[in-house]
Design a protein around this nucleic acid. Structure first.
Length: 517
RNA sequence: CGGGGCGUGGCUCAAUGGUAGAGCGCUCGCUUGGGGUGCGAGAGACUCCGGGUUCAAUUCCCGGCGCCCCGACCA
């Protein structure tokens, strides 16, 4: 008997910039936190309850912001007649390669095999919506006649399907959940204002709810939404140095109103095509959340998005202790609930340590331990999911530092402020991580060094190249222009005019370049 | 769609041309309980699908499907 012993695999690989390891780490966090998994259906994802609860929290926060800016929710069909999609040529060709198409409406048994009934072939194929501009504007034609009907500010929460070549949980799945806003306006100015306003809503959500710092800017023409005159985006930087587009807002001009023939009569009695915007964010944001905050112990959630903000764990030996600590745990939970905290008591028959690992993996920000000693002293033990890092610190030392024992009343009173502090700390931490991976770069040699030797990140560079030269950069360095940041997004040391990093031609301002998802 | 890797209990992985093992998880019993207690018993796999070679295929070959990495693609 000289067989090698199979070592159980560590809970997660270390966070690293190597693509394969980072990808494995990402999947490990998702599995450990039970957020989602692959479905048997190609490229599709099953979102587990914990993952879905996070999405629900995101929905609520976003929805509040949409309502506050005058929007209403509605719902439109899943199926788009093929002819609708082709009314806007650029739009149609932009999505042509990734559409799921329904061609039959009935099944039939042939030699024991169930197949689409050839006799049930649809006269016109139906496309499963990859986005809803066309079907919504077909409807808007009936809703809009007069300037009095404008602006029309509608949002839809829905699923969409894009048959992508390569999928990745949350980041790019064949089917995903999102919201899409579709607004109609009487003037170009108003539609543009809406486009910019909703990008601000997204940026506010990303930073103040997700605790992910983002950079707002305009996409280059090549990266625009198919059919848009202008596409704005917010871009975040993940822990492996790759950028993630976290939300987009499009100015559509009159392209879709012309395609669907939506005209209105203005105050002067003249017919005019309506101006449009559309904007959306998706479950991809959950991917951003994972890749921004999580660590080797699993998921880290900002308190505002944690379905469980505090978990209370009773610790006991005897039955008597069990009863008493459970009573106290229930009291603590009730008091926290009254303060508006999402709290859960974990009374499962398990070792306490095992529960700690499990809830940490799920990203719960705070844990309260209630043991016999606490009952005796009138205290509580509060453990944080994360603390500021001290380089080189041993895991045990950090673990000790994460716990604090406080008098009961003080402990209860500290929860809400501590959650608020952790929310702020996460944003601060993410900002530092991002800034440490951000460089102002003025020549190709430094650019190459940054992306090939130093792990890469955000590069502020001057650019005056052609689209072909953008492709050249992509081939050489795997980088692209994430966006052309707004003036107020540019850090002081990156402001001002200069010369293009590739061509040496004059450039008015820097753009944001990086590798990306 | 091109290049590479992979597909074996729920999870992570071994092994083998003669129908399979481990760790973790799960169930039961005792034990333990402020960071994954320990011991014992038990359940759980037609080795991704289809075909070929062979007396014999989980293993070798071909095709398909799926997953991971790179490329292409990605409002």
């Amino acid at each position: 008997m000289n067989k090698p012993v199979n070592q159980p695999k560590a809970a997660s690989a270390a966070i690293t910039t190597r693509a394969q390891d980072y990808s494995q780490w990402y999947l490990d966090v998702i599995r450990q936190a039970t957020l989602a998994e692959h479905s048997a259906v190609r490229g599709c994802m099953v979102i587990r309850p914990h993952g879905y609860a996070i999405w629900e929290k995101m929905q609520r926060e976003l929805d509040d912001r949409f309502k506050a800016t005058g929007h209403e929710n509605a719902y439109f069909p899943l199926f788009i007649p093929l002819s609708y999609l082709t009314r806007e040529e650029k739009h149609a060709s932009g999505f042509a390669k990734e559409c799921a198409v329904v061609t039959h409406h009935r099944l039939k048994s042939v030699n024991g095999e169930i197949v689409p009934d050839p006799e049930s072939k649809l006269e016109e194929p139906l496309v499963v919506r990859p986005t809803s501009e066309t079907i919504i504007w077909a409807q808007y034609k009936n809703w809009i006649q007069s300037y009095r009907d404008l602006p029309l500010l509608i949002n839809q929460w829905a699923n969409v399907v894009r048959w992508e070549m390569r999928t990745r949980l949350f980041l790019r799945t064949a089917e995903f959940l999102w919201q899409e806003g579709h607004t109609a306006h009487a003037t170009e100015k108003e539609a543009l204002e809406e486009t910019w306003k909703m990008l601000d809503v997204y940026a506010d959500f990303a930073e103040n709810v997700m605790a992910v710092p983002v950079i707002k800017g305009r996409k280059t023409p090549g990266e625009r939404f198919a059919g848009a005159l202008e596409t704005l985006s917010i871009e975040g930087l993940m822990q492996d140095g790759k950028a993630l587009q976290m939300g987009t807002s499009h100015y559509l001009g009159q392209n879709f109103s012309k395609g669907a023939d939506v005209k209105f009569q203005n105050k002067d009695g003249q017919l005019e095509y309506v101006y449009a915007s559309s904007w959306g964010v998706s479950t991809r944001l959950i991917g951003a959340l994972i890749m921004t905050h999580s660590d080797d112990a699993g998921l880290v959630l900002p308190p505002k998005l944690a379905p469980v903000q505090v978990v209370v764990i009773p610790i006991y030996k005897s039955d008597e202790e069990h009863v008493k600590t459970m009573e106290e745990a229930a009291r603590v939970a009730a008091e926290l609930k009254a303060l508006g905290v999402a709290v859960r008591v974990d009374d499962r028959d398990m070792q306490p340590g095992a529960k700690y690992y499990e809830w940490e993996g799920k990203g719960v920000p705070l844990r309260i331990e209630v043991g016999p000693k606490d009952l005796e002293k009138g205290s509580l033990c509060i453990a944080r999911r994360f603390v500021a890092e001290i380089p080189g610190e041993a895991p045990d030392a950090q673990r000790r530092r994460r716990k604090s024992f406080l008098p009961r009343a003080e402990a209860i009173a500290s929860i809400v402020p501590t959650l608020a502090a952790m929310q702020a700390e996460l944003l601060e931490r993410a900002r530092k991580t991002r800034d440490a991976r951000t460089r102002v770069i003025d020549n190709i040699a430094d650019f190459e060094k940054f992306f090939k030797d130093e792990g890469g990140g955000f590069a502020w560079v001057h650019w005056a190249g052609t689209p072909e030269q953008e492709d050249e950069m992509a081939k050489r360095f795997e980088t692209s222009i994430r966006n052309i940041p707004f003036e107020d997004q540019i850090p002081a040391q990156a402001k001002g005019a200069g010369v293009c990093i590739l061509t040496g031609k004059p450039s008015a301002q820097r753009v944001l370049m990086s590798k990306s998802y």
